[in-house]
Computed example of a mutant assay.
Amino acid sequence: MSPAVKGAYAAAAAGVATVVAVAVLQVPADSDGVAARPFPTVGVLMAGGEHWCTASVVDSPHGNVVATAAHCVAPAGEDGEPGEVAHDGLAIGELAFAPGFSGEGAGSQPFGVWKVRSVHVDDRWTKWGDDTADFAFLTVEPDAEGRSLQETVGEGGAPGPDWTSGYEREVTVVGYPESDRNPENKPVSCTTQTRHDEDDPDMLYIGCSGFWTGTSGSPWIADRGGPGEPGRLIGVLSGGDTDVDSTAALFDERAKALYDRAARD
């Protein structure tokens, strides 16, 4: 069964389940009274200036690579032919990334808004709509001062990719539900164990409430520790039939090939 996507406008049915280490991320103040942001590398992927999905910075040589779900940036193909529209029937629009985004309405973009220069998606998705290839890597432009995205959000804060992960890992998943259910645009976070999805054993599964529409592309980060231990990115949120059930395609060698292309672009 193909999971229901959790992009910007796709419908997601509510479910009832036990909450597992779920929290709306609070923004504490540091010793100087400046708001600290525990996940500055995670933010909103915008299409045409609107919250479309979630995305995150992944460590790369030039500091300019962002990971998200393939369905957030490219229509699913069918029977070997490219799709024509996004999962919700809408045009995707010009893409940009706002890390650390929060606040009502237009909100605050503490690290700016970064224009997406190129999109790298697997043919398994664009021709066949294969859920196990529902990941994408984006290359973003430097800012007006020539700085990289990773330099701006913090060089040591971006998780590195893991291309050979197993299915059973403790992960932290961070995402931005759309503003209808999250008017202050605060990210939600869950730390829990992954396992094989019962409906599709090739997919990863977690059970955490609060991952509504808009959280597609949320990073699944393993081995995350304290400062200087950003962990390893093993996948991004692909879908789920309710806000509690979430799935991800495990990164593989094909994902690495996309990442390598994005890192060179």
Rank of each mutant, 00 (worst) to 15 (best):
V188F: 12
T164A: 15
W220D: 02
Y176C: 06
W128P: 00
G207Q: 15
A136R: 04
G175H: 04
K186M: 13
T213P: 00
V140G: 05
T213E: 06
A158S: 15
A144E: 14
L149E: 10
S209A: 10
C190T: 15
P183T: 07
D200Q: 04
D134V: 00
F135K: 00
S165L: 06
W163R: 08
E198W: 11
G214T: 08
P201F: 09
Y176N: 05
T192S: 11
G214R: 06
S148M: 07
D130P: 00
D143A: 10
S209P: 14
D180R: 13
C190K: 01
F135Q: 01
T139H: 13
S216T: 12
V174G: 11
W212K: 01
L204P: 10
S165Y: 05
S189E: 14
C190H: 04
G157S: 02
G156M: 06
T191M: 01
G154N: 05
S165K: 04
T191F: 02
D134Y: 00
T194G: 01
G129S: 04
S218T: 13
T164L: 12
C208S: 13
G156S: 13
P161F: 14
P201M: 03
P161H: 09
T139A: 14
L204S: 10
P142S: 06
G154T: 08
S148L: 08
C190E: 03
R181C: 01
V174I: 15
F135R: 04
E184N: 08
W220Q: 03
G210K: 02
Q150T: 02
W220G: 03
P177L: 06
P183Y: 09
G217D: 06
Y205L: 15
T192A: 12
W212F: 12
G210R: 03
T213N: 06
G129V: 01
Q193V: 11
L149S: 08
T132D: 15
S189A: 15
E151W: 03
G207F: 12
T215M: 12
G214L: 07
S216F: 14
N182I: 12
T164W: 08
V188M: 04
D180F: 11
E178Q: 15
S218I: 14
K186N: 07
V153H: 05
G157K: 09
S179K: 11
P177T: 06
S209K: 07
G146F: 09
V140E: 04
